[in-house]
């Protein structure tokens, strides 16, 4: 039994689940930006991710510090405009994260498939209460 455990040691470690990306708001920001490589304005991003100004700024700041996004300040029709864009390292890290997430779901689907139908949670018996 011990050898079986040691042979699959770290199988579910998922080192690729980047902590910076693994947060709901930041994940939605990056997903919006990765599918719009030319960038999105602050307002568009706010609407797409359903975030408040303060929350979006805070999460963008974290992503900018991690060099995953760049924030470009400029003007459009004499109005100040902030455009957010994903950086090449950001795209790379996001893709690595996506691959790991896919692996997590595949593993979960495999485990769920191999479970016997009458015993949904292995090793646990239903409460009589």
């Amino acid at each position: 039994m011990k050898s079986k455990v040691s042979s699959s040691e770290g199988r579910f470690a998922y080192e690729g689940l980047d902590r910076v990306i693994h947060e709901r708001a930041r994940l939605s920001i990056l997903t919006s930006l990765v599918t719009n490589p030319k960038g999105l304005t602050f307002n568009d991003l706010k609407q797409l991710c359903a975030l408040t100004d303060g929350n979006l700024s805070r999460h963008l700041n974290v992503l900018e510090k991690g060099k995953m996004v760049e924030i470009l300040k400029g003007h459009e029709r004499n109005r100040p405009q902030t455009v957010c864009r994903i950086t090449p390292p950001g795209r790379k890290r996001y893709l690595e994260y996506l691959s790991t997430l896919e692996q997590v779901i595949r593993d979960a689907a495999k485990e769920t498939k191999s479970e016997p139908a009458g015993n949904p949670i292995r090793g646990l018996t239903p409460s009589r209460a």
């Binding site: 719009n36 997430l101 896919e102 779901i105 595949r106 498939k113």
Partner: peptide
């Protein structure tokens, strides 16, 4: 189980969208 497959489909569609802009 269906949720898991839907999640995998969503990941594939993000990948396809990324590929279409690369």
């Amino acid at each position: 189980m269906n949720d898991l497959y839907k999640a995998l489909d969503d990941i594939s569609s993000i990948r396809r969208q990324m590929a279409s802009t690369t």
